[in-house]
């Protein structure tokens, strides 16, 4: 209705191209499904936070860290059962999903995960939202490591 074709020239001669870029996110932004999939569960977010610190983790260490965070206890106080519950969920759901999206790869023989091709993109998104959405999680994921160093 307001779109008068005769006005096209005016608009285009001005800031039309710039405006279009502002209104419509780039293709790379729109096609971030794997980023949202990767970060769509608190345990996967925690796992990705730990990748910010180190690119390689054993599943057992990861399970211990996550169990400590979820139960609000230090890592040395995590029980075997608490660790096993998390370990099983990592192994059967979260790590295969992240591997599907090329965020991590799992070395079956050593049960170690390593950051993969898409990890950079996911971690960039995570760092961007970490300050507002998940600051507690991030603080814990990093803080525990600082504590470990001090011990």
């Amino acid at each position: 209705m307001v779109d008068d074709p005769t006005r096209d020239d005016d608009v285009q001669s001005g800031s039309e191209s710039v405006g279009a870029e502002r209104d419509l996110p780039s293709r790379e932004i729109l096609e971030l499904d794997h980023v949202y999939e990767a970060l769509g569960h608190s345990r996967r977010r925690y796992l990705c936070y730990t990748l910010l610190e180190r690119a390689e983790w054993s599943l057992t260490d990861l399970a211990t860290k996550i169990a400590a965070w979820e139960n609000g206890v230090p890592e040395h106080a995590v029980t075997g059962l608490q660790r096993e519950r998390v370990y099983v969920a990592l192994y059967h759901t979260h790590v295969p999903k992240l591997a599907d999206d090329d965020v991590v790869t799992l070395d079956e023989s050593t049960e170690t995960i390593v950051a993969a091709e898409n990890a950079t993109q996911v971690l960039a998104a995570l760092e961007g939202m970490g300050t507002t959405l998940d600051s507690n999680q991030e603080t814990h994921a990093r803080g525990e490591m600082d504590n470990d160093k001090q011990r």
């Binding site: 096993e84 370990y87 099983v88 059967h92 759901t93 295969p96 999903k97 599907d100």
Partner: peptide
């Protein structure tokens, strides 16, 4: 439970 390894449930069904 940690001995139930191969294949991951993820390969069979979307548990989530």
């Amino acid at each position: 439970p940690s001995e139930v390894t191969s294949p991951p449930l993820y390969d069979s069904v979307d548990v989530a």
